[in-house]
């Protein structure tokens, strides 16, 4: 009975769409990197960096949309750093990624603490307001859920078909997919493998940073330590769950957001019976289960994790 009540409230569906947004950005970003053959474990740190930079930009008096751009640029910068190590130098993508996560997260916390040394409660900013799309938002039920959201949420949903089109219908997308499957074939076409992979990692990292920025300048209004809380790792699991396809990534992100939105509401309804910590575990356990379910069909990009060195086979 109570479960049914949750599903018919509009608040639940609105929260679902909102919570899916950072997952969509992060999953698309990771997907682009992995399609080009680079596992980007820097995602957790890059999302933290995006969250901090965007928040700080607005806090210092900057404009919200410029903050998104600045976060994306910072993300791309860390993507470049990742690419220098993992693509140009061909070092272990696992260790590089962990290193980038540690570096980006600790730099974010350091800069945050240095710029705001004496605050105990994180100060708030004026975040993105929900933007009601004229006309569409008037549709009963659907309008409130889908068309009265933060502008960044619209951006996330629009990016899914754009990334899909880019990957499957453009020569550049073909090259990106090919460099993740068979870099030597790309080389034979006269395309610079290293440059292509670097661009893909930078673009993907920019997406991740915007996902982080969404949390601070659209949802929580504040930045605090440890706020990404494993969302980046969940995105990596979602990429596998989505079989490296943007459309399925959207479906996966929505499914996960549904569990997250449901979890909060069930938790309130049944806190006496089941301790809340078990609800908080759900996204992580579900991510593991999703990977187990998809494991038989997981078709990893063939050159994922394999560095490319010219003239070496």
């Amino acid at each position: 009975m109570e479960l049914l009540d949750i599903f018919i409230t509009l608040g639940f569906w609105g929260a679902l769409v909102r919570m899916a947004t950072p997952l969509i950005f992060g999953t698309l970003g990771e997907l682009i990197c992995e399609r080009a053959g680079v596992l980007n474990l820097g995602i957790e740190g890059i999302m933290t960096m995006g969250a901090m930079v965007a928040w700080m930009w607005v806090y210092q008096g900057g404009d919200l949309w410029t903050a998104v751009l600045v976060a994306a640029a910072c993300g791309a910068l860390f993507g470049l750093l990742h690419a220098v190590f993992s693509v140009y130098l061909g070092l272990s993508q696992h260790v590089t990624g962990i290193g980038i996560t540690l570096l980006a997260a600790s730099l974010s916390y350091f800069v945050f603490r240095m710029l705001l040394p004496d605050v105990t409660t994180p100060p708030k900013i004026e975040p993105f307001k929900p933007f009601a799309i004229p006309g569409l938002s008037e549709i009963p039920y659907i309008g409130e859920v889908l068309f009265t959201q933060s502008p960044l949420t619209y951006l996330a949903f629009i990016l899914v078909p754009i990334v899909g089109y880019g990957l499957y219908r453009t020569p550049l997308g073909l090259a990106v997919r090919m460099v993740g499957e068979n870099p030597m074939a790309v080389e034979a076409q006269g395309i610079d493998v290293h440059r292509l992979r670097t661009c893909a990692v930078m673009l993907g990292s920019a997406f991740m940073a915007v996902g982080g920025a969404f949390l601070t300048i659209s949802v929580f209004d504040a930045f605090y330590i440890g706020m990404i809380n494993g969302r980046g790792w969940i995105c990596i699991a979602l990429v596998i769950f989505a079989s490296w396809r943007p459309g399925k990534a959207l479906a996966g992100a929505l499914l996960f957001a549904a569990f997250e939105a449901l979890q909060i509401r069930v938790q309130q309804a049944s806190s006496a019976v089941i301790p809340y910590q078990f609800f908080l575990m759900m996204p992580y356990i579900l991510s593991i289960l999703a990977m187990i379910v998809m494991s038989r069909r997981a078709a990893y990009p063939k050159a994922l994790l394999v560095p490319f060195r010219k003239g070496e086979r």
């Binding site: 809380n229 790792w233 575990m281 593991i288 990977m291 187990i292």
Partner: peptide, 14 residues
């Protein structure tokens, strides 16, 4: 099942 251990070990931390 060839499930990638990087992500699973990371998620188990939480």
């Amino acid at each position: 099942l060839r499930v990638d251990e990087v992500v699973t070990t990371l998620l188990l931390n939480f």
